[in-house]
Structure formats: structure tokens, C-alpha cells
């Protein structure tokens, strides 16, 4: 028997098992990825059973978080999460759109790439570093400059009253804004870049100024994607644990003042790292995580549904969009 036929025979045998094997292995990997997702949901629900039996849905409407008397409720944490995330995304959205507009429409070509890279670098800074910076640099500024200023100009509103403090809702909002702006900006920027140049020319040729072109043509064409990008940024803000934990002051309670200490779902879970004293407390933390999971699933799926209707675009644009969302952890499919 010569060498060649041996080779051919092994090759043939390998090929016979190769194709189904590759298919089976890759399928198993994909199935594992899907299973992990299901397992996360299952384990969280299972882990929160104890707290659920004890507090039921009333957990969501109760303000107390008292480890000594074993009474737990999520309301003030939900409130803190909502206030910080909504205000952060409200500040971040116009800023992010403005940055994206500058990067695609106004900045000179060589500046664009550099500025775009800088904005993406802001997104890459780990949250624990922003938290550290938030305590030791931003906090003192908020306490000594920003809060006195807001109090003296807008102090007639209940939101800007109370003792000044470097940690609290206001600092958390600012840190979250810094985290969310680059995410929304880079997705929005890609969205603008996929709007065909002919549309821009069409508006300008009618005698529109650049801003009128943006408002009348560019923003409407990119609108569904922008909503999705904002939803994505909101999801990030809701889920951020570290930076918020470090700057928000970790206090239970519902206050109108933005100067007050507060806490969020994610930060409360992270803040109990040094161990909870009872099984009920542990279960209550898992209950919080379940609420967080439900919110993030709703936001994520909502964002995906928002993108769906515009998905009749040519493949090239779809890839560009996919890339934009994927970079931030969301698909345009």
C-alpha cells in the first residue's frame, strides 16, 4: 500500500466524522450560551424564593431595608435607580446627539477620527476608576461649588435644597452621565454615518441650512436607531453598580432633594459584598437582582423591537449598524 492511499483513506474517514462533529460541537456551544441565559433567570428566581415568600410583591412597594429586624423592601432603591438613570440619560441624550452631529457633520475630516477615538476612550474607562475619581475629585467639586451654586440659583425648588455633600444623587447622576454619553454618542454617530449623503444634498440643494438639514432630514432618518441607542444607554445606567455605589452615599429613603444620599438596586447589591447576616437578606439581594434583570431585559428587548422596523435597509448599511450596536452590546437585527 503506498503512502498516498493511506492519506486519502484517513482524510475520508476524518471528513465523514468531521462535518457532523463540527456541527455538534458548535451547536453545543451555542446551546450553552442560550442555556446560561435561561439558567441566570432560573437561578435568580430560585434564589429570591425565600424573600418572595416572606414579602411577596409587597417587596416592591416597601421602603424599609433593615438587616437588624430582617425587614426588606425595594421601593427606595427603585426610586433611586429611576431618578439617577432617568436624569442621567436626559442630560446625556442631547449631549450625545450633539457630539455625534459634530463628529459626522461639522468637524474637519482629520479631526473626526481623533475626536471619535477620544470619545470612545471615555467609554473604555473602567467604572471603578470613574467611581474613585467621583469620590476624590468630582465629589468635593459638587459639594463646594456645584451644590451651593444650584442652591443659590434654583433653591426655590425642593430639588436643590438640603445640606451639601460630595456623595449623593447629584454626583451619581453626573458620573452616570459621563458613562452614558460616549455609548449613546458612538452609536448615534454610526447611525448618522449610514444616512446616505444624497439625502443631505437633497436638503441642502433646496436651500436648507446645515442645521435645517439635520433637523428635517438627518434626525428623522436616524430616529428609531437613536431611540434604541438611548434605551441601551438607559440600560447601562440602570445596571451600573460600582461607580454608583462609590458616590451615592448608600442610604435608604426617598427624598426630593438631589443633594441627598440615596441608593440604587445595583449599588445596594454590590454594597452588601461583605456578606449578609441572614439567608433572608441574601435572598432579598437576589430578589433585587431579579428586579434588575427584568428591567434590563425589558429595556434590551424594547430597544431591539425599536430597530426592527427599519431593517429593510441594504445589507451594507445593516452591517454598519450591527457593528455600531454590537460594539455597545446590542444588535440591530
Amino acid at each position: 500500500m503506498d503512502k498516498k492511499s493511506v492519506l486519502e483513506r484517513t482524510r475520508g474517514r476524518l471528513d465523514r466524522i468531521g462535518d457532523p462533529a463540527l456541527k455538534a460541537i458548535t451547536f453545543a456551544a451555542a446551546a450553552l450560551a442560550v442555556t446560561v441565559l435561561g439558567l441566570i433567570a432560573f437561578e435568580l428566581v430560585r434564589g429570591s424564593r425565600l424573600a418572595f415568600h416572606r414579602f411577596g410583591l409587597g417587596f416592591v412597594t416597601s421602603q424599609t431595608w433593615d438587616a437588624i429586624h430582617n425587614q426588606f423592601g425595594a421601593l427606595s432603591l427603585i426610586f433611586g435607580t429611576a431618578v439617577t438613570s432617568i436624569l442621567a440619560i436626559a442630560i446625556a441624550t442631547p449631549l450625545a446627539i450633539a457630539i455625534a452631529l459634530f463628529l459626522t457633520e461639522l468637524a474637519p475630516k482629520p479631526v473626526r477620527a481623533l475626536l471619535g477615538a477620544l470619545v470612545e476612550m471615555l467609554a473604555a474607562i473602567p467604572s471603578v476608576i470613574l467611581g474613585l475619581w467621583g469620590i476624590l475629585v468630582l465629589g468635593p467639586f459638587v459639594q463646594n461649588q456645584l451644590e451651593p451654586f444650584l442652591n443659590s440659583t434654583l433653591g426655590f425648588l425642593p430639588f436643590f435644597r438640603g445640606p451639601h455633600s460630595g456623595t449623593g444623587i447629584l454626583t451619581a447622576i453626573l458620573i452616570l452621565t459621563i458613562m452614558v454619553v460616549p455609548i449613546v454618542a458612538s452609536v448615534t454617530r454610526e447611525l448618522f454615518a449610514t444616512v446616505p449623503p444624497e439625502l443631505r444634498e437633497g436638503a441642502l440643494a433646496l436651500g436648507a441650512t446645515r442645521w435645517e438639514m439635520v433637523r428635517g432630514v438627518l434626525l428623522p432618518a436616524a430616529r428609531p436607531g437613536i431611540f434604541a441607542a438611548v434605551a441601551l444607554g438607559f440600560g447601562r445606567a440602570v445596571g451600573e453598580a460600582m461607580a454608583v455605589l462609590m458616590v451615592i452615599g448608600s442610604q435608604i429613603g426617598i427624598h426630593l432633594s438631589l443633594f441627598a444620599h440615596s441608593d440604587t438596586l445595583a449599588a445596594r447589591i454590590a454594597g452588601q459584598y461583605n456578606g449578609s447576616s441572614t439567608n433572608l437578606q441574601t435572598s432579598s439581594l437576589v430578589y433585587l437582582a431579579t428586579i434588575l434583570l427584568v428591567i434590563s431585559l425589558a429595556v434590551n428587548i424594547g430597544a431591539q423591537l425599536l430597530i426592527k422596523p427599519i431593517d429593510r435597509r441594504p445589507r451594507r448599511r445593516r452591517i454598519a449598524l450591527d457593528r455600531a450596536f454590537e460594539a455597545q452590546g446590542l444588535s440591530a437585527d
Binding site: 446616505p196 444624497e198 444634498e201 437633497g202 440643494a205 428635517g216
Partner: peptide
């Protein structure tokens, strides 16, 4: 005014 090679209606 101008009319372009490819029809470019706004969305």
C-alpha cells in the same frame, strides 16, 4: 434648485 441622479426622497 437641483434634481439628482438617484432619486433621493426624504424618509
Amino acid at each position: 434648485g437641483m434634481v439628482f441622479q438617484k432619486p433621493n426622497p426624504f424618509h
